Simulated scan of single mutants.
Amino acid sequence: MSFRPIIVLAGVLAIWSAAASAEAIKIGVTPGPHAQILEAVKPIAAKNGLDIQLVEFSDYVVPNAALDAGDIQANSFQNQPYLDNQKTDRGYKIEPVGLTVNFPLGVYSKKHKSWADVPDGGKISIPNDPTNGGRALLLLRDKGAIKLKDGVGFKPTVLDVADNPKKFKFVEVDAAQSPRALDDVDAAVINTNYATQAGLDPVKDPILREDPKGPYVNLIAVRAADKDKPWVKILVDSYHTPEVKEFVLTKFKGAVLPSW
Rank of each mutant, 00 (worst) to 15 (best):
K149C: 05
N132P: 02
D142F: 08
D51Q: 12
S125N: 12
G144A: 02
E95Y: 10
N48T: 03
F77T: 02
P119N: 14
D120Y: 13
I94V: 12
A40E: 13
F103R: 06
N75I: 02
K110A: 14
K111A: 15
S114P: 11
A145C: 11
T131H: 04
D89W: 06
Y60D: 03
A45C: 10
F103E: 12
L140M: 14
D89N: 11
A145N: 03
A74T: 08
L139K: 08
I124S: 10
G49V: 05
L99I: 06
L137Y: 13
D84F: 08
A145K: 12
S76G: 03
I126D: 00
V118R: 15
S76I: 02
I126R: 07
K123L: 15
T100H: 04
N75Q: 07
G122P: 01
V118M: 14
D129Q: 06
D51R: 13
K149L: 14
T131G: 05
D117I: 11
D117K: 15
Y108P: 10
A74F: 05
L140Q: 10
P43T: 01
V118I: 15
K113M: 15
F57N: 01
G70P: 03
T131F: 04
G122K: 14
G134T: 07
A65P: 01
G106I: 00
L137Q: 09
D117E: 15
L83H: 04
R90Y: 11
L38C: 01
L148C: 11
P119W: 13
A66T: 04
G106W: 09
S109D: 14
D117C: 13
I72Y: 03
E39W: 02
W115T: 12
I44W: 00
Q86F: 08
I44P: 09
F57Y: 15
A74G: 08
K143E: 14
G98N: 08
V101S: 08
H112F: 15
Y82G: 04
A136I: 06
N102S: 10
F103P: 02
D59H: 00
E39Q: 11
N79H: 13
Q53M: 02
D117F: 13
L137H: 12
V97W: 05
I146P: 09
P127K: 00
Y60W: 05
A69M: 04
D59M: 00
S125I: 06
N79E: 02
Q53K: 06
G91D: 12
A116P: 14
D129L: 05
I146K: 14
D120A: 15
N75L: 05
N48I: 01
